[in-house]
Design a protein around this nucleic acid. Structure first.
Lengths: 208, 208
DNA sequence: GAGTGTGAAATTGTTCACAGCG
DNA sequence: CGCTGTGAACAATTTCACACTC
């Protein structure tokens, strides 16, 4: 399968969020126009995004909500569960450990790590904080699919390197640095400073 | 000034993050190549991004770290402080209230709101949680530049509408829905589900 | 008729290559 | 001589328009 633009994958996720909502409301079908409104796209773009993976709609009618939702889950790789390790048990790490959205979406947080002796051994949302030193050994015993990095900026790249070397292929980075990883590894960056500065830029350049 | 791509603004923020680091390390100048590595771009793109706003570099030498950092701050609208209100004092809201990065970057959280009577009146990181009902009156008395939305998905759009009507022009949305707002209002979306699903997609489609 | 599927056109964003300056 | 600044080539993405199907 040819590779798809990151922006397309983003929109597929948005379509799925909307479809789940439609499903809860009992709607049987949706049109590309309805999906477009929610996915921040044009109807044509919705159709193009979907047609890339096949023909799921019925002309004159639209898309079956449960059918398309199922197909999108499959495309997005959500038909399975993922093992997630959390690196950093500070403010951000603790908040993430308590976040119910992970489990709800198929991502199981199986361990949480820190290097601060004051935190190691304490319990965070039902998980005992482990020492960062045992990371490699633990991953060797039981592999993880994804690591969430919630360390200070200075430690993030080093941790990322260790994780990749230990076989983790997906990183979700909350540290305010851009991680460099080799091929075959995917990084999603959640950089709040960036989002704030995008707002700042927009407000600053808006006509008053 | 012509309008700049969102991706360009993103990169400008990354350049600034890197420049601040260089400044702390006492470096006097950086080349477009060094900036590129950090901003996830090519040297040519760095130069193009910057040249859009003027000529800040010296040929044969590079860019002065403090000079370029100052200019980027100005371009990004970071030469002032912003008043921020936080909507939702649940898990995410509380974590955000405690996040020191806001203040450090010029964003002052001046109020936090919730609709749950059990939370109203309690203190979150030095701020007393106010009733959502008083939002409009409060904003009339003292305007805010930016609102951070950390409500459940179902409440987010309604809150956004009220905020925009009350004059807020920048929204940072943590609720897992895409907000629709009129022109003149900017929204930054932090949608963790999207990031997770981007990882899921990448892992699912990686060649094993 | 309503709404999908899709090549072709338009637009947008990125890379190249080199002139020009310190 | 190294590195910036920039128009021109290139690539990717989005929009358009319309045939086609239910």
């Amino acid at each position: 399968m040819r590779d798809v633009a990151a922006s397309t994958v983003r929109r597929l996720s948005l379509y799925l969020q909307f479809l789940d909502e439609c499903g809860r409301q009992g709607l049987g079908t949706v049109s590309s126009g309805a999906l477009a409104e929610r996915g921040g796209a044009s109807p044509a773009q919705v159709r193009k995004d979907l047609s890339f993976f096949g023909s799921f709609g019925r002309r004159g009618v639209g898309y079956s909500v449960p059918l398309l939702a199922g197909r999108l889950r499959e495309i997005l790789g959500l038909a399975r569960r993922y093992r997630v390790v959390l690196i950093g048990a500070g403010r951000v790490g603790a908040a993430l450990a308590a976040y119910p959205g992970f489990r709800a979406r198929g991502f199981d947080v199986v361990a949480i790590y820190d290097v601060d002796p004051a935190r190691i051994g304490t319990s965070v949302d039902g998980l005992v904080v482990r020492s960062g030193a045992s990371l490699e050994a633990d991953l060797l015993a039981e592999a993880a699919d994804i690591a969430v990095i919630a360390t200070p900026a200075g430690a993030a790249q080093g941790v990322a390197d260790r994780l990749v070397r230990a076989g983790v292929r997906g990183l979700l980075n909350f540290a305010p640095v851009t991680l460099a990883v080799g091929p075959g590894v995917t990084v999603s960056e959640v950089n709040m400073a960036l989002e704030l500065e995008a707002l700042s830029y927009a407000l600053h350049h808006a006509q008053p």
